[in-house]
């Protein structure tokens, strides 16, 4: 099965890094990178491609933050979690954000920055 990944994060530098890491990990046949959640949502809704196997999602973003993105996504894809593992990726997490995680029980986990090649491969193994 083809493994695909979406990375949504507004940090420009992080984007550069994660692209490199995904390339090096070499577990995902397809990877999409978004600095704007709204754009990602739009692509998911309106492109005919399959749902990605993994979404790495940042929380603190302008215009649409991670939570707003998740809510919108759940509306569009009620069975989202059966095919897509979504991980929250952040450098640290505020108390209020921790509570928020509990509102989305289907999330597959929380990953702390910095990510590494090994971590990405582990995720790749995890999704099979």
């Amino acid at each position: 099965m083809k493994k695909s990944i979406y990375v949504i994060d507004d940090d420009e530098i992080y984007q550069r890094i994660i692209k490199k890491l995904v390339a090096r990990a070499d577990v995902f046949q397809q990877a999409s990178f978004y600095m704007n959640a709204r754009k990602a949502l739009h692509d998911l809704n309106f492109t005919n491609s399959e749902m990605p196997s993994v979404i790495l999602l940042d929380i603190n973003m302008p215009v649409m933050d991670g939570w707003q993105f998740l809510k919108e996504l759940e509306k569009s894809f009620p069975n989202l979690y059966t095919q897509t593992k979504i991980f929250i990726v952040s450098s640290s997490i505020a108390y209020s954000d921790k509570e928020k995680i509990n509102e989305f029980p289907m999330l597959s986990g929380f990953l702390s920055k910095p990510l590494s090649v090994e971590k990405l491969r582990e995720i790749g193994e995890y999704i099979k």
Binding site: I17, L21, S91, S92, I93, A94, K113, P114, L115
Partner: peptide
Amino acid sequence: YIVSHNLRSHSSNMSSI
């Protein structure tokens, strides 16, 4: 938290780079 998040995002970027 916010500050730590902000600073850590820089430090994690550094370590990754």
